[in-house]
Simulated assay, not measured.
Amino acid sequence: MSASADEPARQAIRKPKYTRITQQELPACKPSLTPFAVISIFTIIGAAFIPIGYACLKASQQVVEASVRYDDVCLPGGSHEEQEQSLLQTNGSGSACVVTVTVPRRMSAPVFMYYELDNFYQNHRRYMTSRSDAQLRGSSVSAASLHKSCDPQATLNGSANAVIEPCGLVAWSYFNDTFQVSLNGAAVALDDSNIAWKTDINKRFPSANASHFNTVPELRGGNSISGSIKGDEHFMVWMRTAALRNFRKLWGRINTDIPAGTNVTVAIQNRYNTYRFGGKKKVVLSTANWLGGANPFLGFAYFGVGGASLAFALAFLVLTWLTPRQPGDSGQLSWNKNK
């Protein structure tokens, strides 16, 4: 009897407080997608996207770009095995060569120079995680933490007192080819200032000198750093790992116009060993505009979405014309027909 008497009180306690949210009384928009509305939406999308795609394609075509592959011509003499051994990253060894890039159209300053690597998986999970962002920021990091985050390139020869700074596979494989540019035989200075992100320059990398970074050059996978880490912007650019296996990284800028037909001569010291994994190396010269570099995919994507939208609008228009249906006419519903 007492349990029955307490039941209303329990229900009152469990009953939620009345609000418009708990009772689902908030105003809501319930649009009715009539054939006319659907056709209008698809038509507007198509009419907006196709001009945007045209503008993107035109901007991409205005970018002037020229490139040349050099890993296949910058080879020393000897057999393939001897070539690979001579191109190991041993603190400056390698092969010197000269390649020529012919500019197809006038390039207005600044002209950006990139190096391009193909078949290099900077997006590999173990490669990407083999680094210490805390160490790169200049924070004090314990040796145990470095072993966990930078394995297998945390300390030199396993010594806890010889912590590599910066550590990890990304820093260990730092690109170490070098380039010198001449225009029609006249040397041109490459401006490599401010090629890294401002956040990298101002916040991400310390002013401390690199330590134990290239003590055993025969065991390194790339370049060394002399002096302050913050002073090497090429290293900062390299540490921004690429999302795809084929990628470009900015090397510098040519702050002078290059007329059409100019032969740009690039003297290369070929050190970075891409031969062991079947990679390719290129030198790329490119201008930029509001869209960035040459990127026709964005324009084609807008064209594709805009064209598909117009096609859907036309299809709905034809279907509406062939099988008209009045709003509120339930006689055409399948469940009503089957009765």
Rank of each mutant, 00 (worst) to 15 (best):
E84F: 06
A313K: 11
A315F: 08
N289A: 04
S211Y: 15
K281H: 08
A109K: 09
V38L: 11
W172K: 13
S159Q: 05
V103S: 11
A294Q: 02
E65H: 03
M239F: 08
F49H: 07
A144Q: 12
F312R: 11
F120N: 02
Q180H: 14
D177V: 00
S4F: 10
N214T: 06
I44Y: 03
F312T: 04
I13R: 05
P8D: 03
A47M: 04
P76I: 01
V98G: 00
S95E: 00
I229P: 07
N273F: 03
H234D: 07
Y115T: 13
L219C: 03
N194F: 11
P31D: 12
L314T: 15
W290E: 04
M236I: 01
T43I: 14
A96E: 10
L319C: 07
K280M: 12
M113C: 01
V73N: 01
L333R: 02
D71A: 01
T215I: 09
A208G: 13
Y115L: 04
A301P: 02
G222D: 02
A48S: 02
K58T: 05
I201L: 10
V103N: 12
V305R: 13
L250K: 12
G279C: 00
V73Q: 15
Y115Q: 00
V283I: 09
L136P: 05
G278L: 11
S142C: 05
N209D: 15
I164E: 10
R248G: 08
S226M: 06
A12G: 05
S4W: 14
P31H: 01
V237S: 15
P8T: 10
P8W: 15
W290V: 07
T102R: 01
D118M: 04
T265H: 00
Q24W: 05
I195G: 02
N270Q: 00
L146Y: 06
T19D: 14
S309H: 01
R220S: 10
G299F: 02
W251C: 03
V68F: 06
A308V: 14
R106V: 09
V98Q: 00
A47T: 11
R220Y: 04
R20W: 14
H234A: 05
F179E: 12
